[in-house]
Structure formats: structure tokens, C-alpha cells
Design a protein around this nucleic acid. Structure first.
Lengths: 246, 246
DNA sequence: TCGTACTTGATTGTTGACAATCTGCAAAAC
DNA sequence: GTTTTGCAGATTGTCAACAATCAAGTACGA
């Protein structure tokens, strides 16, 4: 009995993906590629007909994506793709800086083994993307590198929240049309320096580089938006979790 | 037409709560009061009959609570109340320390007005609870004080994650049977000092007190558990987000 | 006696039909 | 001309029946 109309080879890992997973994945893909634009409304019945499932799994998937911040559900109105505002970018990156260094610190102080192979794989992916000036792929490699770090720390809730924030970043990339081709080389140097500090378990350096990296990203993002970069607000957000005793 | 079998006066604020809200609230109450114990399985059909709704809203509510960390849903197996382990307590409090000081810092650097009236109301509630040696009420006042702070910072995602973490704390309180009667007075001094620093907008002091407060709480919790307090792990978690440059 | 395959009962996943609610438009009243 | 009221259409919320799946218990064979 073949899987429902899925043409790709089936991975034998884990149980078969449910209809909810299939619908959720299709929607995620549509949102982060920008095929579904912010403000666009998603109606259950047409979507159900299109994906050939009933409304039940559709509703479950919509609520799942709402939870990940990919959709906004208004009672009796349905689901819409959320708009992105500069404050959202600041908030998401501030949270990533904060939660990420929490995970990073735990990872480096633990005796836990580092996932060096995976990290270096993503690092090489980043490097190849830079050589080809392929910004989207570089961003993807960067996100995967960071997710590997966070997941390895073994903190369930931090990892879950981190993945939610990662979806937000993917929305930013899809909808804000940021051009960071100029910064690609610099970004590689940053992640390379970070990687060196991590594999050498130089915790303080790694954390500093981690935070600096996020500051650069958020700067690249916000500078190209309408409002300009509010450096004071960003300072408020980033130093908020690294206060030094007075 | 009266609301479905709810005997309390109806608040006219906002739209009528949906069946999903009713079910979710009933479950939340059952979990944080400990009527539903960790490991206990929740079956959809009996619950639907008991609450006089169909399985649809039940399923929605179960998934909603899963998002808040109040339930764990296993495919084809249903929902169970999650077990609590010491590492969970550490993780939740580390995240609260981290996200909380993010919000606190933003709040104090903003020109935003502080919700002084609400804060002082909760502070008095805490004080009354201490006088009566009513630990549960004190804990509740403390949680509400913190939530007020975080919500006032105006960071949507931080606030949402914070509320999720607050549910986790309520589970801890319900299931771990912590006795903190001895520390109640000290805890009031701590929150009182924090409050003073906040209303005077002494950001650095406020943040330091904030973190110290969480360290005390987690210590109180974990010291009474099987494994004892792993101070090194806690240090790893809390200092992870306040690294000083080497 | 131990291990394996089958059967069975219980429980969740899915479906299509029905009910409640909301938005937008148009007509009537002021 | 402006506001209000009622209607119509569309869309989500809810429900009960059906299908798929899983865990445990049972019988069979080595």
C-alpha cells in the first residue's frame, strides 16, 4: 500500500507521517517560499479539496502552524499569514541571541560530545554558498548550524522555542527580500570564528561571537526596512540578558 | 439564551468563550490543582461525555494544552500529563531568568509607563499571603507580579513564551509538593527589593535581583527533589546568558 | 517453558453533514 | 445625505458515524 500520492522515496525512519503532517509541511513550504503572502487568507474548504483531505486535518495543521508563528488564527475568521514589522525582527533576534547563548553555554560546560561532523558539514555548505553568491542557501546553512548547536545542548523547551523562532526567521527571509550579498564574506568569517571557538570549547569567546553575529544579522535586516535601525532599542534588547553588576 | 451550564456571572468583555476554551480551562484547572496526576492518560470520549461536547473541541483543546506544555500527545495513543524531572525545573527557571531579564531590560530602558498600580497590588497580595503563611497564594502573587512585568515590555513572543513557562511552574507547584514556608519571609524581601529597583528604574540592580530571585527559587525546588541541587549545572544555565567578555 | 503470530478490544484519526457566526451589501428610515 | 436595519452569502465551529491503528491477551508451535 503506497503512501498517499507522495512521489518521493519514503524514509523508513519513524512512523508514517500523518495527514496533519503532510498538510502542515505543504503550508510551511508555501509560506516560507513566499507563495502565500502576508495578509493572505487561507480558507479551509478550498485547501482541503486541493490537498484531498477533509477539513479535520486541515484545522489541526492550521493550529499547529499558528503555534509556530507561521499563521494567525482569528475566531470565526480563519487563518491569515501574519504581517512582519521591524519590531518583530528585533524581538526574534533578541530572543535568539538570548536563548541561543543559554544553550551554547550549557553545551560547552557539559561534558557532552560536540556534533562536530554535522557542524562542519553545514559550515562547508555555507562556504560553497558564499563562493556561488547564493545568499538563500547561505542563510539556510547558517540556520541549520545554529539549530544543531541548540539541539545538542539537550534542553527540550529551549530547542522547541528555538525551532519556532527559526520559522519566524524563514518568514523574514521570504517576505522582506533582504539583500545581504555584500555581507556574505563577512558572515562566513563570523561563523568560522564562532566555530573555532566552539570546537576549542572557548565558552566566553563563543558567546561573544554568537551575540555579535546576531547583532550583524539584525542590522542587515532592519537597515533595509522603512524605519531604519534603532540601535538603542537593539542595545536594550541584547544587553538586557547580559547585565554586568553595577 | 444562557451560556452553556456555566453558573458564574458572564463577563461582557470580548466574545463568548468557545467550547474549546471551556474544555481547555477545565483541563488546565484539573492539571494545576493536581487532580490529574502526571502519567495519567486522558481519553477523548469519556471527557467529551463528561463535559457534554463532542470530540472535536476536545481534540482542539488537547492540542492547545500540548502547546502550553501541560499535556503530551503521542500519535495514536492520546494525551498524558507529563512527568516532571529535576532537569525540567532547571530548564524552565533558566529560561525564565533569561527571557525575563530581556523583558525587564526593555521595559526599564523604554519610556513606557510602568504598571505600578498592578505591581503593587500583587506585592500586597504577596505580603498578606506571607502573614498568613499561605505559600500557594504567595507563589501565585509572585507569578502574577512577574507576568505583569513581562507583559508590560510589549514583546509579543517573549510574553507568549513566558506564559507557557508560567504553566510549567504551576505544574511544578502542583506535582512536586514543595514546602517553602521557611523561605516565605526571605522571598518577600527579595521581591520587595526588586520592586524598589524597578519603580526607581535602576535597571542593573533590578536585573541582578531578578536573577538572584530565580536562583533562590530553583534552589528551593531542586533541593527537595531526589537528585539534589546541581549548582554547577545551574551556574551553566544562568550565567550562560550573562557572559562577560574574557 | 519460551517465543512468536494471531486475534480482539479499545482508542485515536478521518470524514461529510449540519449549525452558528460573521462580513458585506442593499434598502429603508431619519 | 447619513445612519440603521435586515438579508444573503460565505466561512468557521460542532457533531456523530466510520476507518485505521495500536496494545494487550491468547493460542499455537518449537
Amino acid at each position: 500500500m503506497a503512501r498517499k500520492g507522495v512521489g518521493v522515496p519514503v524514509r523508513s525512519r519513524g512512523p508514517a507521517p500523518s495527514n496533519v503532517d503532510l498538510v502542515a509541511e505543504a503550508l510551511r513550504e508555501a509560506i516560507i517560499t513566499g507563495r502565500l503572502q502576508p495578509g493572505e487568507r487561507i480558507k479551509e474548504i478550498p485547501l482541503a479539496q486541493q490537498l484531498e483531505v477533509s477539513r479535520g486535518p486541515i484545522r489541526d495543521a492550521l493550529r499547529l502552524l499558528e503555534h509556530d508563528g507561521l499563521l494567525e488564527i482569528i475566531p470565526n475568521r480563519g487563518a491569515v499569514v501574519p504581517e512582519v514589522h521591524p519590531i518583530d525582527v528585533l524581538e526574534v533576534y533578541a530572543m535568539r541571541a538570548s536563548l541561543g547563548s543559554l544553550a551554547l553555554h550549557k553545551l560547552l560546560l557539559d561534558e557532552r560530545e560536540l556534533p562536530v561532523r554535522t557542524l562542519e558539514k553545514e559550515l562547508r555548505r555555507f562556504q560553497r554558498a558564499v563562493e556561488r553568491r547564493h545568499a538563500a542557501e547561505a542563510a539556510d546553512a547558517d540556520l541549520r548550524y545554529q539549530s544543531t548547536i541548540v539541539a545538542s545542548a539537550g534542553l527540550r523547551r529551549v530547542t522547541a522555542d528555538w525551532e519556532r523562532l527559526t520559522w519566524q526567521v524563514r518568514i523574514f527571509i521570504a517576505t522582506l527580500h533582504i539583500r545581504y550579498d555584500d555581507s556574505l564574506a563577512i558572515m562566513f568569517e563570523e561563523i568560522d570564528a564562532l566555530h573555532s571557538a566552539i570546537v576549542r570549547r572557548q565558552g566566553a569567546d563563543a558567546e561573544r561571537l554568537w551575540r555579535e553575529k546576531f547583532e550583524r544579522w539584525v542590522r542587515d535586516f532592519v537597515e533595509q526596512l522603512d524605519t531604519g535601525f534603532d540601535s538603542e532599542l537593539w542595545a536594550a534588547l541584547t544587553t538586557g540578558s547580559s547585565a554586568r553588576p553595577a
